[in-house]
């Protein structure tokens, strides 16, 4: 299973980014290999409209199963993620990617509902 966290940086100790669609990076953790990788989403800053669907598309294409983010995705992004069968969880704390993934694996995060 692949878990993606919206982040401000590329490392597992990078802070959680509260925004989903406009996040610069996603730190990705693969529960099978226990490895961390990241998705570079910086080009989204050039996009005037439709950031949510575009970011969601990228997440889907990367084969992610779960996203962890701060505020939760917007309406359009939600629609794409839901249709793509990607689970969404939110965390309002100021913590790192690794910490939020641990919380998720311990069932401490709230599922996002639109």
């Amino acid at each position: 299973m692949k878990i993606a966290v919206s982040t401000v940086g590329t490392k597992k100790d990078s802070k959680l980014e509260p925004r989903f669609g406009r996040a610069n990076y996603f730190v990705v953790y693969d529960t099978e290999t226990k490895e961390y990788t990241f998705i570079d989403n910086q080009e989204i800053q050039e996009t005037a409209h439709g950031a949510g669907p575009q970011t969601s598309q990228k997440i889907f294409d990367a084969g992610v199963n779960v996203i962890l983010t701060g505020n939760g995705p917007g309406k359009n992004a939600f629609q794409v993620l839901e249709a793509g069968n990607i689970k969404m969880f939110i965390c309002k704390e100021d913590i790192t990617a690794e910490e939020v993934i641990t919380k998720y694996l311990n069932n401490e995060l709230k599922a996002f509902e639109n």
């Binding site: 409209h49 439709g50 950031a51 669907p53 598309q57 889907f60 359009n76 629609q79 794409v80 249709a83």
Partner: peptide, 18 residues
Amino acid sequence: AFNAITMLGKRVLFFNEL
């Protein structure tokens, strides 16, 4: 040009507001 279309595999999603 407006990110109004998303593809999930072979499924097409339109975002009419965009």
